[in-house]
Amino acid sequence: MTRPELNKTLDADTFRSFYYLKEELISFCKQEGIQRTGSKSDLTERIAHYLTTGQKLTKKYTSRKNTIELLTPETKIEENLVCSERHRSFFKEQIGSSFSFNVHFQNWLKQNSGKTYQDAIQAYIHILEEKKKTPTKIDRQFEYNTYIRDFFEQNNDKSLKDAITCWKYKKSLAGHNKYEKEDLEIL
């Protein structure tokens, strides 16, 4: 079965068995008046629910305003921290210009309210050290990145063009989008 066009006549199971770009999901949501914000998995859930029930799910967001004016190493990390430009500037000043918010560090900040920003600086350094020792876990929504990494783990003699050709073939098929040796048949 070839990948069907995403439209409101599609059933949810068929929709879930194929790969759609986030842009395609957003476009469909816009066309159908469904909330377009959130991650790819949020959009997928809303669309699947809509295709099954005809109901449009919405997620209510609460305002999370940072209340701390001046950040110092002794400042306590606030609850519901939002990684803002102010935070980025603070960490760049403390750690160096190479600082960037990575997923592990953002999660650490959100799980450690009440600790100090000095603790956060130490955690960031530790996270970078651990990252060098172990391969990065790619989050579920980044299927392309996972596929390409898995492709090259088994085919280091192939090119990126080969990997992309296999990826395009794989995502046109129903089912999962994980790399399998059989994907090479398209080459």
Rank of each mutant, 00 (worst) to 15 (best):
E130C: 14
D162N: 14
T116Q: 06
S63P: 05
H104V: 06
N155P: 03
S172I: 00
E153L: 14
C83F: 04
K181L: 11
V103C: 01
N107C: 03
Q141T: 15
V103H: 11
Y179Q: 03
R64V: 09
T136I: 13
F142H: 15
Y61L: 12
L184C: 02
G114Q: 11
F99H: 04
I127W: 05
Q94Y: 04
S172M: 07
S98N: 07
Y179F: 15
K181P: 03
W167Q: 09
F105Y: 05
S63E: 10
T58I: 13
L160G: 00
L128S: 11
L184K: 03
S89F: 02
I77R: 06
E129T: 13
S97F: 03
E74M: 04
N177Y: 09
Q118F: 06
C83I: 00
S98D: 08
T116V: 12
R140L: 13
S113F: 12
S100N: 08
G96V: 04
Y117D: 08
V82H: 03
T75M: 08
I95Q: 01
N155R: 08
N66E: 10
R64C: 09
H87F: 09
S172G: 07
S100G: 03
L109F: 01
E78M: 14
I77P: 00
T72E: 09
L81P: 00
L57A: 06
R86L: 04
F151Y: 11
K132L: 15
I148M: 05
I95W: 04
S63V: 15
E143Y: 00
Y147S: 07
L71V: 10
D157G: 06
H176F: 05
R88L: 08
E143G: 06
F152N: 06
V82R: 09
S113K: 14
A120Q: 11
K132M: 12
E180M: 07
I68W: 00
F142L: 14
N112S: 14
D119H: 15
E130H: 12
Q111L: 09
Y169F: 13
I138W: 07
E130K: 10
N112Y: 13
N145S: 13
G54E: 02
G175D: 02
D162R: 02
W167H: 08
A174Y: 05
D139F: 04
I121G: 08
S84F: 01
W108R: 10
T116P: 03
L173P: 00
S113M: 13
K158G: 02
I77D: 06
Q141C: 10
L184Q: 01
T72R: 08
N112C: 11
S100Y: 07
R149K: 13
Q94S: 13
T146A: 11
A123D: 15
D183S: 07
F152L: 01
T75F: 05
K158E: 00
A120W: 08
T136K: 09
S172D: 14
Q55D: 11
L81A: 15
C83P: 08
D150L: 04
E143T: 12
Q118R: 09
L184S: 03
T165N: 07
Q141K: 12
S100W: 03
A174H: 13
Y144D: 01
T67G: 11
H126I: 13
F151N: 08
S89I: 09
S113E: 11
K60A: 10
G96A: 04
